[in-house]
Simulated assay, not measured.
Amino acid sequence: MRLQDKVAVITGGARGLGQAMAELFVREGAKVIAADMGDLAYENPNVEGYKLNVADGEACKAFVEYVTEKYGKIDILVNNAGITRDALTRKMTDEMWDLVIDVNLKGVFNLTRHVGPQMQANGKGSIINISSVVGEFGNIGQANYAATKAGVIGMTKTWAKEFAMKGAQVRVNAISPGYTMTDILKTVPQDLLDKFAAQTMLGRLAQPEEIANAALFLASDESSYVTGHNLSVNGGMRL
């Protein structure tokens, strides 16, 4: 029960990686609020679903106020919500660029700008930003996505400094997953999946639970001396 009595907010928590983290956090004793544009794809008495567009700054402020009033605190924030709108740069439209920036980058800022100072006032907390191997190394056809995920790493390091001011034990870390078998990848042709797997040292793609285990470590007191770090969980994809 490594998260006993903790209150955790997970964005993009309706399915996929967010679902894996929510269910694991609950098993470890946490109360979870899963914020998402869609309905939860699962049922758990300790997971509360909340409809939220992270790109909406006012909605994010109201959400943080709601959670704080109902649960009294936020111990863990996982900024997991993200989208893709892929195209080569010469074909990428303003709409494709702006939408990915608004959700993947500004959406992380919209929540953290309220939760981080609250954690700082409480003296402790853990913020986990989900980046990507694409944010570390880039990828053809994903200039918008790569920009947001690289930006998330930059914000992580900045917030690790800001929210620990005056002695607060607020830790801010990022996770950069490699290709993970969520619903999105289930639509990718098998020959491409095999190609991705062959690029890793372990010869396979990740399961959502393996990324969730990394998030659990960073959320728990087991990582009490880890902050400002980007944890690459990619099977040795870029070694």
Rank of each mutant, 00 (worst) to 15 (best):
E28I: 08
V67Q: 09
G29C: 04
G72I: 00
N53K: 14
E48F: 10
V47M: 06
V7K: 14
T11P: 12
T68C: 04
V26E: 07
A34K: 06
K70Y: 06
G38E: 05
C60S: 00
E65P: 02
G18A: 10
G38W: 05
R27I: 13
A59R: 05
N79H: 13
G38F: 05
G12C: 04
K31I: 04
V54T: 06
E65R: 05
E69M: 01
A41H: 06
F25C: 11
G16C: 03
F25K: 14
L52A: 02
A35M: 05
T84H: 00
N79R: 13
R15K: 06
F63W: 12
M21C: 14
I33A: 15
L52E: 03
V26G: 11
G18K: 12
N53L: 06
A8S: 15
L17E: 07
A81Q: 03
C60W: 00
I10Y: 14
A35R: 08
R27E: 15
E48P: 08
L77S: 11
A55H: 04
E48N: 12
A59T: 01
R15N: 05
E23A: 14
V26D: 08
V54D: 03
A22G: 14
N46S: 09
L77E: 13
V67R: 09
V26L: 10
A41K: 06
A59W: 00
I74L: 04
E43H: 13
V54Y: 04
N79Y: 14
D39T: 05
M21T: 10
I76T: 12
T11R: 12
M21W: 13
A55V: 02
V9E: 15
Y42L: 09
D56C: 01
N53C: 13
T11Y: 11
K61A: 01
A62H: 10
G57N: 02
D56M: 02
E69R: 03
C60Y: 01
I10S: 15
G38T: 04
M21D: 11
D75K: 12
V54E: 07
Y66K: 14
A35G: 07
V64K: 03
I33G: 14
G82F: 00
I83Q: 01
I10M: 13
N79F: 11
K31V: 04
I83M: 00
V54P: 03
D56H: 01
K51F: 05
N46H: 12
V67H: 11
A8L: 12
L40M: 07
G16Q: 04
E58N: 07
L17N: 11
A59Y: 02
I10A: 12
K70E: 08
K61Y: 01
A30L: 07
A81D: 04
K51C: 06
K70D: 08
I76R: 14
P45S: 14
Y42P: 09
G57V: 00
G72V: 01
L24Y: 15
A62R: 13
L40S: 05
K61M: 00
A55S: 11
A81T: 03
D36E: 03
A14E: 06
N46D: 07
E69P: 02
V32W: 08
T68S: 03
A81P: 00
Y50L: 11
A8P: 14
I10F: 15
C60K: 02
K51D: 09
A55R: 07
K31H: 09
T11L: 08
Q19T: 06
R15F: 03
E28S: 10
G82P: 00
A81Y: 03
V26W: 09
K70Q: 10
N80S: 05
A55E: 08
L77C: 10
